[in-house]
């Protein structure tokens, strides 16, 4: 069986998705800089399923400042801003359990399928939701 599979493997395409580039770039950071400049394109990732737990989206207008999300968050992601009665989320700490989404009484929080969150700076603007 193994031999049969191995030989058929020679003729079939790889099972893995070639992400982020079709061929390994010489320098990954260089490649990503090129992507930012628009000179190169990212080989697309496999789309996430519809109810994927990705980065949390926050609807500022809906939020009533009840702080329930802060009570249930297991990773202390959420910080309360008392003067505005709104919250700030540090996505770098998030464990993507989406318990805050379940607990929110006014549906101000929602899960999004966004998962390309890697960054060298944990306080970069993309990783702070407010």
């Amino acid at each position: 069986m193994i031999l049969k599979t191995l030989i058929s493997q020679l003729l079939s395409r790889p099972a893995t998705n070639r992400f982020p580039a079709k061929y390994m770039p010489k320098s990954v950071t260089g490649f990503l800089a090129k992507v930012k400049e628009g000179k190169a394109g990212i080989h697309p990732p496999i789309p996430a399923p519809p109810k994927f737990r990705g980065k949390i989206a926050y609807d500022r207008e809906k939020c009533i400042g009840c702080q329930l999300c802060i009570r249930v968050c297991p990773a202390k992601v959420i910080e309360f801003k008392p003067e505005e009665k709104k919250i700030r989320m540090y996505v770098a700490r998030c464990t993507f359990c989406a318990q805050c989404v379940d607990v929110c009484p006014v549906n101000a929080l929602a899960i999004t399928p966004e998962f390309l969150l890697a960054s060298t700076d944990r306080l970069s603007p993309e990783l702070i939701v407010e």
Partner: peptide, 24 residues
């Protein structure tokens, strides 16, 4: 070969729960 076929069940778990591991 084994880990290639394991991907299928991880995809199903991701579909049902939203995460590949730590399903919450």
């Amino acid at each position: 070969l084994t880990w290639r076929v394991r991907e299928k069940v991880l995809d199903i778990l991701e579909e049902l729960t939203g995460n590949r591991i730590n399903y919450a």
